[in-house]
Nucleic acid binder design. Structure first.
Length: 800
RNA sequence: GCCACUGUGGCGGAAUUGGCAGACGCACUUGACUCAAAAUCAAGCGGGUAACACCGUGCCGGUUCGAGUCCGGCCAGUGGCACCA
């Protein structure tokens, strides 16, 4: 048979669609498998080869599971709210709804042309009011449970996109969307109290099957530290200066304190501060710096001493000066620190610059040169002197602190609360009404969805106001509580909202009464296997785990964690080895590949190109290699002959079933395909194969190249769809050859190989080895000191 | 600076976890077929040698009968976090 991919690929795609063979059924006797891939953002550029690689892994697993007799849910949808579409809408004066619909159509066609076995009856679109109704519903539930709050604070603001960004969206001080510098701006911000879930998010990681580096990154992101809050009294004022430290046991080494430039203490006591103007000038200077500049680790510390406020060290009564400096951040801890220059490099640099005393309290290092952060005996520390164990000295100091009532043990997280509003049009409207009498009032649940009104102009306001703010009919409303004239919140939710729960909606996508029915959730959840990119490990995954855990806590879902298992795909780089980008002109369009080599070749190649988790450059010639392989597969039909079973070939097939099966589970798709290539080489070398063996071969290949395998199945009179046929099984006893070739070493160096029967005794193996002419020559006139035989693996003779 | 990972032919990458390094694919070379080219088929393909020997998994050392794999110390690179108190 010839491999006419242009003819057979559309043919089978049509048949699968018509007979809906990938449609998931809720419930039943079969075991369930819920495979999930990160749904695409339907950009105008269309599908990227990266999408193909990302989806092909779970595609292969889902197809294998179906053949193994599972009831499989493998859905797809579109994460369609967001800035790129809105920016395109502004540029082209086209409504984002029109653009989104067009892009979704294009994406769907493209996905279908690759033959992915998605259940197309469950497609969701986050911009569909029937969908975002439930996004809003979850938000209101969080509001109801005190997880939503509003604050006027300094936020990350992108002056180019005119939008407030979360920390996650402004990593490195650059806007995640347009990459311009993010500035700090005082704004009214809606927050989700994700920090309240920090411990639950950490705890949840213990039971899930994520790659170790993924877990590690999430742990780092949450950034839990344990330490103590200590209150320092300040001479002449009522308020205490509260600090957070991880080393309360170094309290005797405190020689100054530092507060963040934005610390409220300064304005509160400006009358007592002699150099208030200088402090304000310094503060203005800091505000000009971008977050990025400010967080650069610099030796050259800046700051100003507060003239008029002096703190008292609560353990020894010493007077200590207070500085403001921008190396202390308002956003972490209490925005104030006790500085121990002897044992913290930042404090050390600051003390050196400002000529402040450095008191060593931990023995070790050379503090004339740098701070000592290691362990050692406590010195100059009164009752702590002589302690050598960090844990013990911290414990002892905490006792003292609590006894004196000057503080308490506490924890801190690097993770901050989630800034949740955006001053943009193309997002879920935040269902809150501002009433002059009642304050912030939730839109009643029965009024959901709160629909996004149509507007003509999507341009954000100059002062960073949402385009919705200009629509009076939308803004002006009555308070749902008291009926007073009120105004709607006009900001929308961030891009991450819709993707924080989408996997739940696939389970029950058309339910008008609930986000998903509990019996269906009970059946399908958790997601058994979720594949995606490393870039979503700290944002989307943390957010969705947070939402899911909240929904669990209020009894809406049945599992604490949404994803039982996570895998990560590596990037596909351009043929030049650089990251693919339009500007570099090294982008590969998957549709071009489908046209030239076929969907099966494309699918096979993206999984064959290398270690699935690692980045690898695209190589057109290698795609050709995969196409060549598929042509040889098609040619197998011409080799089918009746006849006796070839025992060598039988072992090869059983080994292949075993390897392909286990490699798929281990995301080692490259070696699974290589194994089939080796097998086909062996078949061609033999020049024939049985019909039964051909069936095994196409079953093993079917998850990778389903169109061709279906076509072969049909051509040899197979019944029904191969995609639903039974996955082959192997017999462990038949995976081992009767005779094995093993290496023979002399003094640890390989000299030759011998053939021995499988499971042969040490004596026989050694005798065979010694009988070998080459080995015999090497042993001539030498004594054998040691004889090693590792069964079925190696013989090593140590001679002198 | 901190955390995690990686380093193997001309290239992408294998190596049952301590047991024949380089599977499989690409590229390349030679031959067959062809008027010719492409495609296909056959053979070869780490270095070295006429052939052996021998040398080879970033570098230095160690453990072991045996190390790509384990240990110690470097070097280089990737990803993430980052004045986090």
């Amino acid at each position: 048979m010839r491999h006419e991919f242009k003819k057979i690929e559309p043919k089978w795609q049509k048949k699968w669609a018509e007979q809906e063979i990938f449609k998931a059924v809720d419930g039943g006797e079969k075991p369930k498998f819920y495979g999930l891939v990160e749904f695409p953002y339907p950009s105008g550029a269309g599908m990227h080869v990266g999408h193909i690689k990302a989806y092909s892994s779970i595609e292969v697993v889902a197809r294998k599971r179906r053949m193994e007799g599972y009831n499989v849910l493998f859905p797809i949808g579109f994460d369609a709210f967001g800035l790129p579409t809105e920016n395109y809408a502004i540029k082209t004066s086209t409504h984002p709804r029109i653009i989104t619909d067009k892009n979704i159509r294009k994406f769907s066609e493209q996905l279908k042309s690759v033959g992915f076995s998605f259940d197309w009856s469950r497609v969701i679109d986050t911009t569909d009011a029937d969908y975002y109704k439930w996004t809003q519903w979850i938000f209101l539930k969080m509001f109801e449970h005190g997880l939503v709050f509003r604050d006027k604070t300094l936020v990350n603001y992108c002056p180019s996109c005119k939008v407030v960004l979360s920390n996650e969206d402004s990593q490195g001080g650059k806007c995640d969307i347009c990459h311009s510098d993010v500035i700090q701006k005082s704004k009214d911000v809606w927050y989700l109290r994700i920090t309240e879930y920090a411990d639950k998010l950490l705890e949840g990681l213990e039971k899930v099957d994520y790659p170790a580096n993924v877990k590690q990154q999430q742990v780092n992101w949450i950034g839990k530290s344990t330490g103590a809050f200590v209150n320092f009294s300040v001479e002449g004022i009522e308020d205490q200066l509260r600090i957070y430290t991880t080393r309360p046991d170094t309290l005797f080494g405190v020689t100054f304190m530092v507060i963040a430039p934005e610390h409220p203490l300064i304005d509160k006591y400006k009358d007592r501060i002699a150099n208030y103007d200088a402090l304000c000038a310094y503060r203005a200077e800091c505000a000009k710096k971008t977050e990025f500049e400010r967080t650069q680790l610099v030796k050259d510390k800046t700051g100003v001493c507060i003239d008029g406020l002096t703190a008292i060290n609560p353990v020894n009564g010493k007077q200590i000066p207070i500085y403001i400096a921008d190396y202390v951040m308002m956003g972490y801890g209490t925005g104030a620190i006790m500085a121990v220059p002897a044992h913290d490099q930042r404090d050390y640099d600051f003390a050196k610059k400002f000529g402040i005393d450095i008191i060593q309290v931990i023995q070790g290092g050379d503090i004339s040169k740098e701070a000592y952060a290691g362990d050692g005996e406590m010195i100059n520390s009164d009752f702590l002197n002589g302690y050598t164990n960090k844990k013990d000295s911290i414990h002892r100091m905490l006792e003292e602190i609590e006894k004196k009532g000057i503080g308490e043990a506490g924890v801190q997280y690097k993770m901050k609360d989630w800034a949740f509003n955006r001053q943009r049009y193309w997002g879920e409207p935040i269902p809150i009404v501002h009433c002059p009498v009642c304050g912030d009032v939730a839109v009643p649940y029965e009024e959901l969805p709160l629909r996004l009104p149509d507007v003509e102009d999507f341009q954000p306001g100059e002062d960073g106001e949402s385009p919705l703010a200009r629509i009076e009919s939308y803004v002006n409303c009555k308070c749902p509580k008291c009926g007073h004239d009120a105004k709607r919140e006009t900001d929308t939710m961030p891009q991450w909202a819709g993707s924080s729960w989408y996997f739940l909606r696939y389970i029950d996508p058309h339910n008008d009464d609930e986000l998903a029915a509990m019996d269906k959730l009970n059946y399908w959840m958790p997601v058994d296997w979720y594949n995606g990119g490393m870039e979503h490990v700290t944002r989307h995954m943390i957010y969705s785990r947070f939402w899911h855990r909240f929904l669990y806590d209020i009894g809406v879902v049945n599992t604490k964690e949404p994803y039982a298992k996570r895998s990560i795909q590596g990037l596909i780089l351009g043929p030049d080895g650089d990251k693919m980008s339009k500007s570099k002109g090294n982008v590969v369009d998957p549709l071009d590949i489908v046209k030239e080599y076929g969907a099966d070749a494309l699918r096979t190649y993206v999984l064959f190109m290398g270690d699935y988790g690692a980045a690898a450059p695209w190589n057109d010639s290698s795609v050709k290699g995969c196409k060549r392989f598929l042509e040889r597969v098609a040619g197998l039909t011409d080799l089918v002959t009746d006849g006796a079973v070839d025992p060598d070939m039988e072992v090869k097939f059983h080994k292949a079933i075993k390897k392909v099966s286990s490699d798929i589970e281990a995301t080692k798709f490259n070696t699974a395909i290589a194994c089939l290539m080796t097998l086909i080489n062996d078949i061609y070398a033999a020049g024939k194969l049985s019909r039964e063996d051909l069936v095994i071969f196409i079953k093993l290949l079917c998850p990778f190249a389903p169109h061709l395998c279906e076509e072969i199945w049909e051509s040899i009179g197979g019944e029904g769809f191969l995609s639903l046929a039974k996955w082959p099984e192997y017999d462990e006893a038949k995976t081992v050859e009767a005779k094995l070739e093993i290496g023979v070493q002399v003094n640890g160096k390989l000299k030759t190989t011998i053939v021995i029967p499988n499971g042969c005794s040490k004596e026989d193996a050694l005798a065979t080895a010694k009988a070998d002419a080459k080995i015999a020559a090497l042993m001539e006139g030498k004594n054998v000191v040691k004889e090693i035989y590792v069964p079925n693996k190696i013989v090593n003779l140590v001679i002198k």
